[in-house]
Simulated assay, not measured.
Amino acid sequence: MTSLADLHALMARLGHPVLQAPPVSGARFADGAAYRFEIPSVEGPEVLAAVVEEADRLGVPVHRTSQGSGVMMLSDEEISAMAELGAERGIEVNLFLGPRAAWDTGGQAKVTQAVGAAARGNAMVAACVADALRACELGIRSLLVGDLGALEVLRRLKADGTLPAGLVLKTSVLVPLTNGPTAAVFERLGASTLNVGTDLTVPQLAEVRAATSLPIDLYLEVPDDQGGFVRFYEAVEIVRAAAPVYLKMGLRNAPNIYPSGGHLGVIPKELGRERVRRAALVRRLMEQLDPGLTEPPSGRPTDLGVPVV
Score class of each variant (00 low, 15 high):
R156G: 13
A5K: 06
A55H: 03
V62C: 05
V202I: 15
L169S: 10
V196T: 07
R64P: 00
V208W: 01
G86Q: 00
Q113P: 15
E187V: 07
G197L: 10
S69L: 05
E152V: 05
Q226M: 12
V309C: 09
K269S: 14
R275F: 02
E54M: 15
A109I: 02
G265Q: 04
A49K: 14
A33S: 14
V230G: 00
L293R: 01
A12N: 08
V24H: 11
D160K: 13
A50L: 12
M249V: 00
P223L: 00
D76A: 09
V230D: 01
A30Q: 04
N94P: 02
A101Q: 07
L95T: 06
R141L: 06
M72N: 09
D104K: 00
L163Q: 11
E88K: 13
E234I: 03
D217Q: 06
L247F: 05
G139T: 11
S298R: 12
V145E: 13
V202G: 03
G305Q: 03
L74V: 05
A159F: 09
P61W: 05
I257V: 15
P17L: 11
V245H: 02
G139W: 10
L74D: 00
K248P: 02
E187S: 11
R273N: 08
V125C: 12
S3Y: 10
A49L: 13
G107I: 01
P268G: 07
A87R: 03
A55L: 11
V47M: 04
A165P: 06
L14Q: 14
D303V: 02
I91Y: 00
I238T: 05
